[in-house]
Design a protein around this nucleic acid. Structure first.
Length: 281
DNA sequence: ATGGTGGCGGTGCCA
């Protein structure tokens, strides 16, 4: 067992924890975030909707909690980031395939682990509503590009974790009221087919693989008492390459976070994989 | 209940 800088944070053989969380403004929720990091101790956390520019990211507070920050920000909307114990090699600061897309929705990086290289992406997939406007084809185009990138990553035969707010409910099990949501961009057949296309490449939806029929949600709207009525959707996903799925030990949706003061409308979701992040060579 | 919540930025847009 090699001695690692943060080995004291993780029990021997406990595996690594990779999380995703649409935080809905990282500045508004810096305290929620650092509290959660201290409690949960993930190796990597993928953030979406940070809603700030790079220089506005609460770097100091997160570094004080023992993490480093990889930020792809944007003024007011969108924005993704990666918070991790060790500094990764940043591979992409945008989803390849459309240089005209200026929205900050993708960051991809590489870590080293005891099981070889780990490729991780933080994804904020477009919402796509209202269907019938240019927003829906933008969503589907983004999903097509993600498909291409996901396919290219598979060829490495390495560990790959594609995590984020996909803004897609894979099936009606992932929706509190399927008929009411049938025509929404999050549930439309085109959106679901595009997600299945990525899964059919050989990726595993970590939560659904471990819990084939459980109704569980990762998002509850702020409106209309959605949280109190448990009117939720499962739209935050961690997709694993076959090599990563081999290592899957657990997947948790941290529902309790939605009940804390001033919460995001999304909760964190994380996987535990049977491998350990090591310092870069 | 023809509304309702929340973030950004300082007005309406976005989710």
């Amino acid at each position: 067992m090699v001695h690692l800088p943060f080995a004291s944070q993780t029990c021997d053989g406990a595996g690594m924890k990779i999380a995703t969380w649409n935080i809905n403004s990282v500045r508004r929720r810096t305290g929620n975030l650092t509290d959660w990091l201290k409690r949960t101790q993930p190796d990597v956390l993928l953030l979406q909707e940070i809603k700030c520019q790079d220089d506005q990211f609460p770097r100091l507070e997160i570094e004080a909690a023992g993490y480093c920050c990889t930020v792809v920000g944007q003024k007011s909307w969108n924005g993704v980031a990666m918070v991790s114990r060790t500094a990764p090699e940043v591979v992409h600061r945008a989803l390849p395939g459309d240089d005209s897309d200026v929205q900050s929705r993708y960051v991809e990086a590489r870590f080293q682990t005891s099981a070889g290289a780990l490729n991780v992406a933080s994804i904020y997939l477009p919402n796509g509503n209202p269907v019938g406007t240019e927003k829906f084809p933008y969503k589907l185009g983004f999903m097509q590009r993600l498909h291409q990138r996901a396919q290219a990553l598979l060829e490495s035969e390495e560990l790959v974790v594609l995590g984020g707010d996909y803004n897609v409910c894979p099936t009606d099990v992932d929706v509190y009221d399927p008929p009411a949501w049938a025509d929404d961009a999050l549930c439309r057949p085109e959106s679901r087919q595009a997600l299945r296309g990525i899964l059919n490449l050989g990726y595993t939806d970590a939560y659904r693989a471990l819990y084939p029929t459980t109704k569980a949600y990762s998002f509850w709207d702020y409106q209309a008492g959605a949280w109190n009525r448990n009117n939720g959707l499962r739209i935050d996903h961690l997709l694993l390459s076959p090599q990563a799925a081999d290592k899957l030990k657990a997947c948790t949706i941290d529902k309790a976070e939605r009940g804390r003061p001033e919460p995001s409308d999304h909760v964190p979701v994380w996987v535990e994989l049977d491998a350990e992040v090591v310092a870069a060579a």
